[in-house]
Amino acid sequence: MNDLLISLVLILVKLGLILGVVLTMAAYLVLAERKILGRMQLRYGPNRIGPGGMMQPLCDVIKLLTKEDFVPDRADKWIFLFAPGLTALAALLSFAVVPFSPPVTLFGREIPMVVCDLNIGLLYIFGLSSLAVYGVVLGGWASNSKYSLLGALRGLAQLVSYELALGLALVPVVMSAKSFSLNAIVMAQADWPNLLRHPLAFIIFMISITAESKRTPFDMPEAENEIVAGYHTEYSGMRFGLFFVGEYINLVVIGAMTTVFFLGGWHGPFLPPVVWFILKVLFVAFLFIWARGSMPRPRYDQLMHFGWKVLIPLALLNVVLSGAISLAVNS
């Protein structure tokens, strides 16, 4: 009983820590994205509130909280109100299986630095990312607006198509780790990160995760200059804020996923493992912000063509190739 209580407290502490760190990171990624994009366009970005604009996220939250929570006429009210939560929730839940450090021994107890080391952790993340679609789709459908509906439709088709390529890109990773558990995947990269072992898989993964997370250049579901703001056109106040924060939590999740699957997780010389993990996550987040500053948005049909006709065959080829290579090396 005492043991159960201690492990419960440990889990709660870990949950609180992860929630705090992830939410702070998401809030400051918004600021970082605005500042980095600004510098890429030869402007400063927000720098008025606090030293260097550091209090900007706080002001944004206050602004969003004090705005009117508007429900459009003839919208499907309850689905409309509930949808933004789904997106943010699915993004937050993904962190339960992400290992951010090797186990730590404290007071004679070995504490795994992950909330729950599921042996099907990868499938869990996949399940959540496919459930995150529902927030977008139901929100867009319930708004009773053509732009929202179009955005939701685009999001749906895009997410379903690119999830295939995403899954196929991770097959070689699972092959070399021989497990679905994220902990085992990190452990398998102790000497070589998967980035060097499966470079093609890494490229396919990065492209399809960009589409999966609806980030520029693949932000069709919210293409501002075509369909206003896509699925969250009709949202205001904190419900829009939930979509927005969900997107940036998602960015942290992607960073963590890329780190775990390809960049070797917490492994790294000199610095403590947690620092390495956070540095790698921030680096991946910077990559995505960089891509947003550099790439134009392709046309929608180009996106679907690329996904189905280039990326998925390439991913299949990659699976076959890396299977053959690992078979040849092992035997």
Binding site: I120, L123, S130, V133, W141, L153
Partner: peptide, 23 residues
């Protein structure tokens, strides 16, 4: 494993395609 596939494939992909057609 089957439980995870159930959520990923049925709830995550097939129902999403249903929604796509409906919309």
């Amino acid at each position: 494993l089957v439980a995870a596939w159930e959520v990923i494939v049925y709830a995550g992909a097939i129902m999403v395609l249903f929604l796509f057609i409906i919309m």
